[in-house]
């Protein structure tokens, strides 16, 4: 085992603010809306001009056409900076429909609209080749502006390959193959640290020898989880527990199971003795322990 794949995926509802909200809403109606900041016009419309910090004083409708100022060709397509006629700052967007040889600085471009609006900046699919056709001068305070989008749905997905490294690797190899937990002793304070690590956090001294740790210990702290939330890994109710295994001085985070949820508040307490119930799975992680159970006849 070298790395463990982990995904962080979370939903968001993001508020663009009034100006960008209006801009996005109007794209679905195939209108290009900019914001006015003093004598400057920004498109996409912004609540604030980053050059000056000036807030938007109002809106302006721009002809959906302009001039290509720069571009870059990548494996995913072409991105370009389009100075929309009448705007003071270029619009960074996709450039579509060009043969590569025809891409030149100064090329005239016009909006290419998406067939079906979906409520994002991609309702404007990009800018494509255009002639010098009649546009119009920026229209101050355009009529009938759409209400701004207040929330935009977004999902963020981040995929990680987390390294086990020598210490976690040694621990979890032993968990998987031998159903053993392995900690390390600090060379200075001699306390056993689990999970193992190169240095003792408290002494900053190197750790020295490996020690086998039996999956038996004491509940240091526990709570009963009832809350449900987006992204939760386990179905409540369950007993969240921080355990200190015998001989160690650190926290192992797991759950205490095998008890009636209705009695969880009183059945498990700080000081309760527990032991691991190993799973049939061999994943090389804490999931190889189904849960910790109370040891009958020991203090709880």
């Amino acid at each position: 085992m070298t790395t463990m794949a982990t995904r962080i995926q979370m939903p968001y509802t993001l508020t663009p603010g009034e100006a960008t909200g209006v801009f996005l809403a109007e794209l679905g109606r195939r209108r290009l809306i900019g914001s006015r900041h003093g004598d400057r016009i920004l498109v996409p419309a912004q609540d604030f001009d980053g050059s000056t910090g000036e807030p938007a004083e109002g809106f302006v409708e721009l002809a959906p056409a302009g001039r290509l100022e720069a571009f870059t060709v990548t494996a995913q397509g072409v991105l370009g900076l389009v100075l929309v006629d009448g705007a003071d700052v270029p619009f960074l967007h996709r450039i579509v429909g060009f043969a590569e040889a025809d891409l030149t600085i100064g090329a005239r471009v016009a909006a290419v609209w998406a067939d079906e609006p979906t409520g994002s900046v991609l309702d404007l699919a990009g800018f494509g080749p255009a002639g010098d056709g009649p546009g119009f001068k920026p229209r101050i305070a355009p009529d009938g502006l759409a209400q701004p989008f207040e929330q935009v749905e977004y999902t963020m997905t981040l995929d990680y390959q987390h390294s086990y490294g020598h210490y976690y690797g040694t621990l979890f190899d032993a968990v998987r193959t031998d159903r053993r937990l392995r900690g390390v002793k600090c060379s200075q304070c001699r306390r056993t640290l689990l999970p193992p690590r190169a240095r003792c956090d408290v002494c900053f001294a190197p750790t020295a020898e490996w020690v086998d740790v039996e999956a038996v210990g004491v509940v240091q702290a526990c709570s009963v989880v009832h809350i449900e939330f987006i992204g939760q890994r386990l179905k409540p109710p369950y007993v969240y527990a921080e355990l200190v295994l015998d001989g160690t001085s650190t926290r192992l985070i797991h759950m205490v199971g095998g008890i009636d949820p209705a009695e969880a508040r009183t059945a498990v307490a700080p000081g309760s003795r527990v032991r691991a119930v190993w799973s049939d799975r061999r994943t090389g992680s804490l999931a190889d322990i189904d849960y910790f159970e109370l040891i009958p006849g020991e203090p709880s």
Binding site: P195, I227, F229, L234, L252
Partner: peptide
Amino acid sequence: YDPFWGREFAV
């Protein structure tokens, strides 16, 4: 939480 050390139990 450490992705190796208890994240699945976290609230």
